[in-house]
């Protein structure tokens, strides 16, 4: 799957002339980028934007490879998405979190696992509005169905379920010429979730096994139509007794040279993640490459 996506990304990068006519008609960067859960958004949170560039008479899609490397972990995400007529977005993402620093403590606990991994299917519906043209912005709702592929570690730390579904509603609005003539993009999302560390540590826990509403948001500025910088924040539940779960945030810069490709780099802080070995805050770098078709 990862190899396939890489091949497609490489193909799109080297065949610009062939692809150009087929990429949708929405304006540059209005598909956002691909979040770590596959939905169009920023890096950590879904936005009301739908992936790719399909406008109301078109189909479009994206393939994405992302990697976050923090002090003690690395997260790889392979994602793909389809959008129909800027109305419905269907996405898939596979996340793999490498547990390098935890292999020894886990092995002491009798668990021979070196990674956490899950699949995420997402569906998002644009309800009303357009991020550029509507005074009230664009509003979407969606869900992400998540399933752990290896459940031994989440079960060991008292997660209650290996599958879970997040439900969310998002609003996105671009304010033209908002700061020194630059366009400002604001996104807000409310998510109902039971997911621990986004689901990589299962769903629900010994401390809490109910849905809770979490706030997520971002503010970003287009320096030009090709360069976007911003900050993102994602509130997190805290369901597991073994370690405290903390909120996530990042600062990002995205380069969108044209519709076919985007590159996003970020500094991420994921707080303390599964801290059974006093690993401390997980801060690090995030890089994501997306191709649209």
């Amino acid at each position: 799957m990862r190899l396939l996506a890489l091949t497609i990304v490489a193909g799109c990068l080297t065949l610009p002339a062939v692809a150009s006519a087929d990429v949708g008609s929405r304006l540059w960067a209005t598909g956002g980028v691909t979040s770590i859960e596959g939905s169009a958004g920023g890096g950590l949170s879904p936005w009301a934007l739908l992936n790719g560039y399909a406008s109301d008479e078109e189909w479009g899609g994206t393939v994405t490879l992302s990697r976050a490397v923090t002090d003690d972990y690395s997260l790889d995400v392979t994602g793909a998405g389809l959008t129909w007529q800027n109305r419905v977005e269907l996405t898939f993402a596979r996340q793999t979190l490498d547990l390098d620093s935890l292999v020894f403590p886990l092995s002491n606990a009798g668990l021979d696992e070196d990674e956490l991994t899950q699949d995420i299917w997402g569906l998002k519906l644009r309800l009303i509005g357009d991020v550029l043209y509507s005074p009230w912005g664009q509003w979407s709702a969606g869900f992400q169905y998540k399933k752990n592929r290896e459940y031994a570690v989440p079960e060991f730390v008292q997660s209650q379920d290996e599958t879970g579904t997040d439900f969310y509603a998002s609003g996105s609005k671009l304010f033209f010429a908002a700061i020194a003539g630059r366009n400002l993009l604001v996104n807000g999302t409310v998510r109902a979730t039971k997911a621990n560390q986004g689901g990589l540590l299962g769903f629900g826990g010994d401390k809490n096994d109910s849905y809770e509403a979490m706030a997520e948001g971002s503010v970003s500025l287009f320096l030009t139509r090709q360069w976007l910088v911003g900050v993102e924040y994602r509130q997190k539940p805290d369901n597991l007794g073994f370690a405290k779960e903390e909120d996530w945030w990042d600062v990002f810069i995205a380069w969108v040279p044209d519709r076919r490709v985007s590159v996003t780099a970020a500094y991420v802080d994921l707080g303390e993640v599964a801290d059974i070995a006093d690993l401390g805050n997980q801060k690090g770098a995030y890089l994501s490459v997306q191709a649209s078709f």
Binding site: I179, A180, G181, R182, V219, L221, L223, V229, V231, Y233, W249, V251, D269, N281, K283
Partner: peptide
């Protein structure tokens, strides 16, 4: 750890001055 709010303000200040 860098406070996200501080970072936001810094970023916006840099961008605004540049702009």
């Amino acid at each position: 750890p860098i406070n996200p709010m501080t970072l936001t303000l810094f970023l916006l200040a840099v961008l605004t001055i540049g702009g």
